[in-house]
């Protein structure tokens, strides 16, 4: 009983973190795929965005796009 309560609480607490990370990842991914030109291979960026938590999308936002 106590265990499940803890678990529920944990999920409630962690959910926003996961949701924000997910949103960041999706935006970065869409931007990356839509971009005509990325700095470096597009596939590399897709992998970075997908597998490097948080820093991946941030790195893409900061460095991945050519200045428009």
């Amino acid at each position: 009983m106590n265990e499940t309560l803890e678990l529920n609480k944990l999920i409630g607490i962690l959910a926003p973190v996961l949701i924000i990370q997910f949103i960041l990842m999706i935006i970065a991914l869409v931007q990356c795929i839509k971009a005509e030109e990325t700095r470096g291979p597009k596939v590399m960026w897709v992998l970075i965005i997908l597998f490097v938590n948080l820093l991946g999308p941030v790195a893409f936002f900061l460095f991945g796009r050519r200045k428009v």
Partner: peptide, 21 residues
């Protein structure tokens, strides 16, 4: 349009949450 208005606040929110967590 460059999504700065969205991703920067989101990253700050994440940083803010991570510390107490």
């Amino acid at each position: 349009r460059s999504f700065k208005l969205i991703w920067i606040p989101l990253v700050f929110a994440l940083l803010g949450i991570m510390q107490p967590l």
